[in-house]
């Protein structure tokens, strides 16, 4: 039955047989009031003063009550630049409870869950954990506190960690500090590039929560590549062992060229080497052979035979061609050879 009704209705509509829908009808007393002019449709939407004016047929403009007229516009609330004292410990003195630290609850519950879920996913997937501390756009970090001091006091410096102070709505104010483990492995330029690119990505969006989303995604991507750079240099951020390569070599690894990349792929590397060596060598070989062929002297073996047709030197019957017609192909202009000149 559940499927029969829509099918029936659809079939009826298609056939042009619309069901008879009842029109609204006036109540008898309302209809009388309407006809007598006592009832104005829509008057219930008007205010009391407007209804009275309409009933009195007075066209004079309505004078606002002075109490209403003199009401002041509410002054815009100035956001505090100061972080409440009750939040300071959660920001600066206590270890973060998760990868996303939002003690002021600047994000909605759903936004918070989304961002925290992403940071958890990032932590599972990469070696450098990312911690984000959220502040409001205009808030300022107390002079006595800093991101560096938070990282030093709250995080294990032997672990690869990235901590961000993110100002919701103003991503350009963001700060990023790495733990010593990362600082030892990655040069300053590369570290600066991480935050710069994340901020640029965030500024592409206009809505604060979208900005935070873009920021965290881009930051996660950059951190992932940072690990790759360190790995190519022979380092391993996850291990507690000191890096094998000094920073100079890491820098060199980061600046790997096409040749180094080729060496990482043996198949392609040997193909390129072979091509680079063999192709010019083959070209030179062919050129040398061509020159040699041009200067080569061809000496045929001495031979002797019986003279034919009493001819002392030649009885060889060669071809004869006619070139009297430009439209006829050469093969059609082949002159026949007299029988007596055929070789016997």
């Amino acid at each position: 039955m559940r499927f029969c009704l829509p099918v029936f209705l659809s079939a009826s509509l298609l056939c042009g047989e619309e069901p008879d829908l009842p029109l609204p009808t006036w109540e008898s007393d309302e209809l009388e009031a309407l006809e007598s002019g006592d009832y104005v449709p829509g008057s219930s939407l008007l205010g009391k003063i407007a209804r009275e004016l309409m009933a009195s047929n007075n066209d004079e403009p309505i004078e606002l009550d002075p109490a209403v007229r003199d009401l002041r516009e509410p002054e815009p609330v100035e956001w505090s630049r100061v972080i409440g004292d009750e939040f300071l410990s959660a920001y600066f003195y206590e270890p973060s409870q998760g990868f996303l630290n939002d003690p002021q609850k600047l994000l909605t519950t759903q936004e918070y869950r989304d961002r925290e879920g992403f940071l958890n996913y990032h932590a599972r997937d990469t070696d450098i954990d990312l911690y984000v501390y959220l502040f409001d756009a205009l808030q300022e970090i107390p002079e006595t506190e800093s991101l560096g001091s938070v990282v030093r006091s709250q995080f294990d410096q032997e672990k690869p960690v990235a901590v961000v102070f993110y100002f919701l709505g103003m991503p350009e104010k963001s700060q990023l500090v790495f733990s010593d483990r990362v600082v030892e492995s990655v040069n300053q330029a590369e570290r600066d590039k991480v935050i710069r690119m994340a901020v640029e990505e965030a500024l592409e969006k206009s809505e604060p929560s979208s900005q935070l989303e873009s920021f965290s995604i881009q930051l996660s991507i950059r951190l992932y590549w940072l690990e790759k750079v360190v790995a190519r240099g022979g380092g391993d951020l996850a291990s507690r062992k000191p890096l094998i390569l000094p920073r100079v070599r890491i820098f060199e690894a980061e600046e790997k060229g096409v040749w180094d990349r080729l060496q990482e792929k043996p198949g392609l590397f040997y193909a390129v080497v072979v091509a680079l060596v063999i192709v010019p060598a083959a070209g030179l070989g062919f050129m040398g052979r061509w020159i040699a062929e041009r200067k080569r002297v061809y000496v045929f073996p001495d031979a002797e035979g019986t003279p034919l047709l009493d001819a002392p030197y030649a009885a060889g019957v060669g071809g004869v061609i006619s070139f009297s017609s430009a439209t006829t192909p050469p093969s059609s202009q082949k002159s026949e050879v007299p029988d007596y000149l055929q070789k016997m």
Partner: peptide
């Protein structure tokens, strides 16, 4: 008469023939 022909000596009989010389003329 607009004709061209090739004749060759006995020593070249092993290497040339009517077809090859006609091909050269073509």
């Amino acid at each position: 008469a607009k004709n061209a022909g090739i004749t060759f000596g006995y020593a070249l009989l092993p290497y040339l023939d009517e077809d090859s010389t006609f091909s050269a003329l073509s």
